[in-house]
Structures are given as C-alpha cells and as structure tokens.
Amino acid sequence: MNTLDTAARPDQPSAFNPASADDPDRTRWIAHLDEAVAEIFETMLGQRSSVVDAPPPGAHTSAKISAHICAHICATIVFSGALNGLCIVQASPATADRLTDALLGAEGDWDDEMIDDALGEMCNMIAGGWKSRLGALTASCQISVPEISRQRAAHASGHATIATRFYAFDGSVLEVTLALN
C-alpha cells in the first residue's frame, strides 16, 4: 500500500485538483514520478531503485524505513505557473552521502556542502523529469532552483500532497513528495 495523502480542494480548478486517490491525473502523475526517479537512478547513478511501500501508522517497520524517518536533509523545488506546488526530496545524511558517492562514481569524504548539493541536484532532476512528462502543462509551468534544509519537512504547507513515495536503492531509502494546489 502506498501513501497517498489527500486533502480535497473542491474550490480548485478540476483539471489540477488532486481530489481523490482514484483521480486519473493523480495516478498518471505518480507513474510519471516513478518513471522519472527510475530513469535518474539508472542513468546517472548506475543502479536500480524500487518503490517501497510506506508502513501503516504504528506498524513495526524495517530498520531501513525507521532510520529514514529520522531523515533531516530536505531539498525543495517550487512549481509555479499552471501548476503551483512543491517537489520535496528527503534523505538521511547517510543516504545523501551514498547518493553523492553514486553521482560522482566514487566513495568520498564529502563535506555537508557537497552532500546538500547532490541532494539538491537529485531534486532538480526529479522535478524536471516529472514536469517533462506532463505534456502541454510543461510550457506554462516553471521550476525554481532547489533550496536545501537540514530539517525534516513536516508537511507541504498550503498544498495538497499528491503522493509521498519511498525509493529504495543500495540499502538506503529516498523519500519524494509531490504537493500541488
């Protein structure tokens, strides 16, 4: 079971209304997100990723997911224009370090600036890759440069979350949230 947090916004234009779990737009957008992430992992990191089901609240979790919940590096990109919202990529420091190793093709003793940069670049590619798959919407939507925070994003304030997805790779988990108006 995947996490599909919803917040119905009946006052929003129906074309972009993340209304319900079975909304075909939502389903398609989540598929686009999964495709974008898989392509980035295979092309730039040279490894496979897999979607991991989020655990139900209160359930026992694997060590990987539990450790991930303490994630506190957060990269955020803002969508504006025809689509308003956020793409948020979160990872534990250890996961972000592994991502940096994979992007640069070598293990290294990376400083915080480099690790933050790597996560920001992942967010950039994920947001761009997802947006590229939207078709006609792409022309009327802009994306920002990524902002990095060393605090976990509690929620995407002011936006309805389309989905939060967990992607497992090389013993780590990357969390990606799409939140749109």
Partner: peptide
Amino acid sequence: AESGDPELLKAMNAGAQGQLSK
C-alpha cells in the same frame, strides 16, 4: 533538467547551439 523547458527555445534563439537533458 527538463527537456520541454520553454526557456530552452529562448536559449536557442539567444545563440545556444544545442541542448542536453539531465
């Protein structure tokens, strides 16, 4: 990072000779 970025067309008109998507 975005193959369909409308800014790309502006960049090509401004003198870029090619583009590569991430």
